[in-house]
């Protein structure tokens, strides 16, 4: 394995860099589509890059009693989704990896932890209300993603990401009941995983004024926003990798392009749903997620017994 360290590193950093660069573009496309849906002209597609650039140079206000924690939270927030990208086993190919599905779930959670730390370190009433909501959502959503991976793991008899991606969730028959049920569950829960409307009550500009992020400005806000964009890309890619197989056999450039196109399609769907829904209240959302979680556990039960 030691011979593979440089390979893991090189590929990981490459993939992380790609996500980092592509994430604002995805956000820009989202904004543009939203604008079209709202019969507006909308900002240019590359506006998010300008926004981030502008924020990088703005004054950095720190209201927390422990500003170091605020800084740490900002860095951690961006690193978490990028580390997931870095662990990605490569499109279709079996690449070396530093971890497996369980690590993936925890790394995705780490992004949430960073937001929580950010909110706690800022410590204003609204931030704390926001992190309480964020944590409640995470408590239900993080297991949901884990369950989806476990369903795939049950079918694939493995926890390596390379074995789980590319349709393993549908079992050897290609259309297992548990895989389809899980697909349904995740389609309904996906907006929440990327914290877009109708499940953006953590931030809820019109209620608690962006919650955990409200005390952030300048470069820290840039990092946190960038992290949010990266999380959208990574989560959408995860959906594609788990539930939308096909195209891997096309070889190097085409497989990657097909994968990117599918990811873009998922982002498009997220955008359309986000633009056409009312924000849920946190209690409504929790009840909704609870139902999803039970359905997920049922799917896992099916998968355990081979269905």
């Amino acid at each position: 394995m030691s011979g593979h360290l440089h390979e893991i590193l090189a590929r990981g950093l490459l993939q992380a860099g790609a996500v980092l660069l592509a994430a604002p573009l995805a956000e820009g496309v989202m904004r543009k589509i939203t604008a079209v849906l709202q019969s507006r002209q909308g900002p240019p597609v590359i506006q998010p890059y300008y926004d981030l650039l502008k924020l990088m140079g703005k004054e950095d206000l720190e209201c927390g009693e422990s500003p170091w924690m605020q800084r740490l939270a900002g860095w951690l927030a961006l690193v978490a989704p990028l580390s997931v990208a870095a662990l990605w086993p490569g499109i279709g190919g079996q690449g070396p990896a530093a971890g497996d599905a369980i690590l993936l779930v925890y790394l995705l959670t780490l992004g949430g932890v960073a937001t929580l730390l950010a909110g706690l370190a800022a410590g204003s009433t609204y931030s704390l209300l926001g992190i309480s909501r964020e944590m409640m959502t995470m408590m239900v959503l993080e297991p949901l993603l884990a369950i989806a991976l476990l369903v795939a793991a049950c079918h694939a008899d493995s926890l390596q990401l390379a074995d789980l991606f590319g349709g393993a969730i549908y079992g050897r028959s290609g259309h297992s009941g548990s895989g389809l049920l899980m697909l349904g569950v995740l389609v309904f829960a996906f907006q929440a995983m990327v914290s877009r409307r109708p499940f953006d009550m953590t931030e809820a500009e019109s209620e608690i004024m962006e919650g955990p992020l409200m005390e952030y400005s300048g470069p820290k806000l840039a990092l946190l926003q960038w992290a949010r964009m990266a999380r959208l890309v990574v989560s959408s890619a995860l959906m594609v990798a788990l539930f939308w197989p096909g195209g891997a056999q096309l070889g190097f450039p085409w497989a990657a392009l097909v994968f990117a196109a599918k990811t873009a399609a998922v982002i498009l769907a997220v955008t359309v749903i986000a633009a056409t829904h009312v924000r849920y209240r946190v209690d409504q959302a929790i009840r909704y997620f609870g139902g999803m979680l039970l359905a997920g556990l049922a799917a896992l039960g099916l998968a355990c017994f081979g269905f």
Binding site: T34, L37, Q38, S39, R197, A204, S206, H277, V278, R279
Partner: peptide, 16 residues
């Protein structure tokens, strides 16, 4: 009202 409920599309259409 749409905006407060997080439904900006409604807001935009109303204004149009």
């Amino acid at each position: 009202a749409g905006h407060i409920l997080g439904y900006d599309t409604l807001f935009m259409h109303c204004f149009r």
